[in-house]
Amino acid sequence: MSDTYVVLHDPDGRLEAELPLDRAPHEALVTAVLAWKDPDLEPHDYEQLALQLAGHARAVADDVRRHAATLPKNDGPGALAEIVLQEADRCLSVPPKGTAHCAQNRARLARALYERLDRLTKPLPAAS
Results as ranks from 00 to 15, higher is better:
1 M>Q: 01
2 S>H: 09
2 S>L: 13
6 V>S: 01
7 V>E: 11
7 V>S: 08
9 H>I: 15
10 D>E: 09
12 D>Y: 09
15 L>R: 10
15 L>Y: 09
15 L>H: 11
20 P>D: 11
21 L>G: 03
23 R>N: 02
23 R>K: 11
24 A>Q: 14
25 P>S: 13
26 H>D: 12
26 H>N: 11
26 H>R: 08
27 E>W: 06
27 E>Q: 15
28 A>P: 02
33 V>K: 04
35 A>P: 07
36 W>C: 15
37 K>S: 08
37 K>M: 06
39 P>S: 00
40 D>S: 14
41 L>V: 13
43 P>K: 00
43 P>W: 07
45 D>I: 10
48 Q>G: 15
49 L>T: 15
52 Q>S: 15
53 L>K: 02
53 L>R: 03
54 A>V: 01
55 G>V: 12
55 G>H: 12
59 A>P: 11
59 A>H: 07
60 V>M: 05
63 D>M: 02
64 V>N: 02
65 R>D: 12
65 R>M: 10
67 H>L: 13
67 H>T: 07
70 T>R: 03
71 L>A: 03
72 P>Q: 05
76 G>T: 02
77 P>Q: 10
77 P>L: 14
81 A>V: 07
82 E>K: 09
82 E>T: 15
83 I>P: 00
90 R>N: 12
90 R>D: 10
91 C>R: 06
91 C>F: 02
92 L>H: 05
94 V>L: 09
100 A>L: 03
101 H>C: 03
102 C>N: 07
103 A>M: 02
103 A>F: 03
107 A>W: 04
108 R>N: 13
109 L>E: 00
111 R>N: 08
112 A>G: 06
112 A>L: 03
113 L>F: 02
115 E>K: 00
116 R>I: 13
118 D>I: 03
118 D>S: 15
121 T>V: 08
121 T>G: 07
124 L>Y: 08
125 P>E: 00
125 P>T: 02
126 A>E: 13
